[in-house]
C-alpha cells in the first residue's frame, strides 16, 4: 500500500473516532466546568477554570463549592439512585437473559409455540412504550409495586425478554444439532445436554445478550420516570432532576452522565473477551 493510501486510512479512522468520541469528550469537558463556562461562547474543550464541584454536589447537594450548590440544593443525593440502578439493572438483566435462554432453547429445539409464539413476544416492542404506561400504572397501583425496585425489575424483565429470546435463538440455532444428538447417544439426559453441551457453546452469545439487555435496562428512562417517585428512582431519572427555574444544570448532569457510564464501560470491557471467543470455537464444519 502506498504512503498516501496508508495516510488516508489513518485520517479516515481518525475522523470516525472524532465523530463517535466528540460527544463523550464534550460531556467529560462540561462535567469539569464551572457554571459560567457551561454555555460560554466560543466553547472550549479544555475547561478554563477546571472544577470538581459538579461531582461533589451530586453526592452532597448542600456543599457550597463552586457556586453550583445554590442551584441543586433541593435535589436528592445521587446515592439512592445509584444503588437502585445497580440493583435493578443487573437483576432484571439476569432474569431476562435466563428466561430468554430457556425460551430460546425451547423454540429452537422443540419448536414450542410454533412460529406464532416467538413472533408474538415481539409485540411488546411494537407499540410505543408509553402506550403500556397507563394500563400498567393501574395494575401497579393495585399490586403496590409503584416506586419499588421489584416493580421496575419485573417491568424491565418483561420488556427485554423478547430481545433475549431472539438473540439467544440466533446463537442456539447456530449450534449444530448433531452435537447435541451425539451427547444424547453418549447417554446424556436432555437437561445435561443443555447445561454441559449447549450452554458452554453459546456462552459468547449469552454474554453479548446480557450486555445488550443491561445497557437497555441501565439507560431506561420512561418507565422509571412514570413508575417511581422517590424510593426507587434510577440514574436516568436523577439526571432529569437537575433542572431548575433558572435553566438546566449542565455541569451536574454531565458529571452524573460520566459516573453512570462507568459500570457499562466496565461491564463491556469484562465481557469483550467472551464476545471474541466465538460460540463454536471456529469448529462448525470443515
Amino acid at each position: 500500500m502506498t504512503l498516501i493510501g496508508q495516510a488516508s486510512r489513518w485520517l479516515g479512522a481518525l475522523a470516525i473516532c472524532l465523530v463517535i468520541l466528540l460527544p463523550v469528550v464534550w460531556v467529560l469537558s462540561i462535567s469539569f466546568k464551572p457554571p459560567q463556562e457551561w454555555l460560554a461562547y466560543p466553547p472550549t474543550i479544555i475547561p478554563v477554570e477546571p472544577t470538581t464541584s459538579n461531582y461533589i454536589v451530586l453526592f452532597q447537594p448542600g456543599n457550597p463549592v463552586g457556586g453550583v450548590a445554590a442551584m441543586v440544593s433541593s435535589a436528592e443525593p445521587v446515592t439512592q439512585a445509584l444503588i437502585n440502578s445497580l440493583i435493578i439493572a443487573p437483576i432484571a438483566t439476569a432474569a431476562s437473559v435466563l428466561i430468554g435462554f430457556f425460551a430460546a432453547y425451547a423454540v429452537s429445539r422443540y419448536r414450542v409455540g410454533g412460529t406464532f409464539m416467538p413472533f408474538f413476544t415481539l409485540t411488546t416492542r411494537m407499540f410505543p412504550p408509553v402506550a403500556f404506561a397507563v394500563p400498567l400504572l393501574v395494575y401497579y397501583r393495585m399490586l403496590g409495586l409503584i416506586d419499588t425496585q421489584l416493580g421496575l425489575i419485573l417491568m424491565y424483565t418483561a420488556f427485554t425478554v423478547a430481545f433475549s429470546l431472539w438473540m439467544m435463538k440466533g446463537f442456539i440455532d447456530g449450534v449444530p444439532r448433531h452435537i447435541e444428538e451425539a451427547a444424547v447417544l453418549d447417554g446424556a439426559s436432555p437437561w445435561r445436554v443443555l447445561f454441559t453441551i449447549t450452554l458452554p457453546l453459546v456462552r459468547g452469545g449469552l454474554a453479548a445478550t446480557a450486555l445488550f439487555v443491561f445497557i437497555l435496562n441501565w439507560t431506561e428512562f420512561l418507565f422509571a420516570l412514570v413508575f417511581t417517585s422517590r424510593e426507587a428512582i434510577t440514574i436516568p431519572v436523577q439526571v432529569s432532576h437537575y433542572v431548575g427555574a433558572v435553566g438546566r444544570f449542565y455541569g451536574p448532569q454531565a458529571a452524573l452522565g460520566i459516573v453512570a457510564s462507568i459500570p457499562v464501560v466496565v461491564a463491556g470491557y469484562l465481557i469483550q473477551r467472551h464476545l471474541v471467543t466465538g460460540f463454536t470455537f471456529g469448529l462448525v464444519r470443515e
Binding site: 449444530p176 448433531h178 452435537i179 444428538e181 451425539a182 451427547a183 447417544l185 453441551i197 457453546l201 463454536t280 470455537f281 471456529g282 469448529l283 464444519r285 470443515e286
Partner: peptide, 10 residues
C-alpha cells in the same frame, strides 16, 4: 454413532 459432520464437542 459417528455423524457425517462428526459432531465433536468443540
Amino acid at each position: 454413532m459417528v455423524f457425517e459432520d462428526l459432531a465433536l464437542y468443540p
